[in-house]
Every structure is written in structure tokens, then in C-alpha cells.
Computed example of a mutant assay.
Amino acid sequence: MNPELINWPAVVVAALSAFMLGGVWYARGVFGNAWMAANNLTDEEIAKGNKGKIFGLTGVFSLLMSANLAIFLATPATTVAWGAQAGFLAGIWTFSAIAIHSLFELKSWKLIFINGGYSVVSLIIMGTILGAWR
């Protein structure tokens, strides 16, 4: 890992891509309704959430994920293909962690695949951006 090879603007854009994907992924017409049902959440309960805290911390954690992936990709040999592959591998890792926690929380496989799928896809996109923007 060579820290000089980290493209920090790419890290920010990759983090924003995960944030934007979440807006689409969890939209009602995509997986939002199924996600709410699997969590037994109502519109009223969702409305009670502290949006500043939720979105602010989501942005911070997306940035941490992107920076972490960028550190692993900070080599001269990194390409778009390797970035996407590394993102996929990191996504499998996070999918597995989500599955483990969810199984102990007695969550459904539907919820595991919704949340874990988001993680895999978002990390593939992040890795692709980081690999392309060298």
C-alpha cells in the first residue's frame, strides 16, 4: 500500500455513490417496502428517526468504507477490473457479517439479502470508481 496513490477526491465520490445507491436501493419501489415489512417498521416509526443523525452517520460510515477500500487498492497495479473485484470481495465479507448479526437477531433471509445485497453492490461500485480514477 502506497498512501501517495490514494486519490482522495475519488474516495469522496465513491462514498457518495454508496450514499446515492442507498437512496435508490431502499426506495419504496425497489426494496423499501420489503425492507420496512421485514423490520416491522411503519411510516410513523420511520418519521420519528433523527434524519440528521441517520444521514450524517451514514455519510461518515460510507466515507470510512471508501477510504478503507482505497487503502487496499493503493498499489500501482490497481485497475478498474481489480477495483471492482476487490469491491466484490469486500462486499462478500460485509454480507457475511450482516448475515451473522441478522441470524442472531432472528431476522429473515429476505432482510439479510436486502441489506447484504446493498453492501455488495455498493462496494463493487466504490471499487470500480477507485480503480478507474487513478
Score class of each variant (00 low, 15 high):
Thr58Arg: 03
Leu64Glu: 07
Pro76Cys: 06
Ala34Cys: 10
Gln85Leu: 12
Leu63Glu: 08
Ile92Ala: 15
Gly49Pro: 00
Val60His: 00
Leu73Arg: 02
Ile71Ser: 15
Val24Cys: 07
Val121Tyr: 02
Leu41Gly: 08
Ser62Asp: 10
Thr75Ala: 15
Ser96Asn: 13
Trp93Gly: 12
Gly91Tyr: 06
Ala27Phe: 00
Leu16Lys: 02
Lys110Met: 15
Pro3Gln: 07
Asn115Gln: 13
Ser108Val: 12
Ala77Cys: 03
Ala90Thr: 05
Ile54Val: 11
Asn39Glu: 09
Ala99Asp: 11
Leu69Gln: 01
Ile71Gln: 13
Gln85Glu: 06
His101Cys: 13
Val12Met: 02
Pro76Leu: 11
Ile6Leu: 09
Trp35Val: 11
Ala74Arg: 08
Glu4Asn: 15
Phe19Ala: 08
Trp25His: 07
Leu103Trp: 10
Ile98Asn: 10
Ile112Asp: 09
Ile46Leu: 13
Gly127Ile: 03
Ala90Pro: 00
Thr42Glu: 07
Phe61Ala: 08
Phe72Tyr: 09
Gly127Pro: 01
Val121Ala: 13
Asn33Thr: 15
Pro76Arg: 09
Gln85Met: 08
Val30Thr: 05
Ile125Asp: 01
Leu57Trp: 09
Thr79Gln: 11
Ala37Trp: 02
Leu5Ser: 06
Gly22Asn: 05
Ala67His: 03
Glu4Ala: 15
Phe72Lys: 01
Lys110Asn: 14
Thr78Ala: 14
Ile129Asp: 00
Ile46Asn: 09
Ala47Ile: 09
Trp25Asn: 07
Trp133Glu: 08
Lys51Cys: 00
Ile124Cys: 07
Thr79Glu: 08
Phe19Tyr: 10
Ala81Glu: 08
Gly49Trp: 03
Leu73Tyr: 04
Leu89Gln: 11
Glu4Trp: 10
Lys107Ser: 09
Ala84His: 04
Asn2Gly: 05
Phe113His: 09
Val24Gln: 06
Thr58His: 03
Phe113Lys: 04
Met1Val: 11
Gly52Ala: 08
Trp35Ser: 10
Gly83Pro: 01
Thr75Met: 14
Thr75Tyr: 14
Thr94Glu: 13
Phe104Ile: 15
Ala34Phe: 06
Met126Phe: 03
Ile46Ala: 14
Leu5Ala: 07
Leu5Met: 10
Gly91Trp: 11
Ala37Asn: 12
Ile98Gly: 09
Ala84Phe: 10
Val11Asp: 04
Trp8Pro: 00
Phe61Trp: 11
Lys110Leu: 15
Asn115Glu: 12
Phe61Met: 13
Gly131Val: 05
Leu103Cys: 11
Val120Gly: 05
Phe88Ser: 08
Leu5Pro: 01
Gly87Pro: 04
Phe31Met: 06
Gly83Ala: 01
Leu106Ile: 02
Trp133His: 09
Val13Arg: 00
Asn39Leu: 13
Val80Thr: 14
Gly23Val: 04
Asp43Leu: 15
Met20Asp: 03
Ala77Leu: 12
Ser122Trp: 02
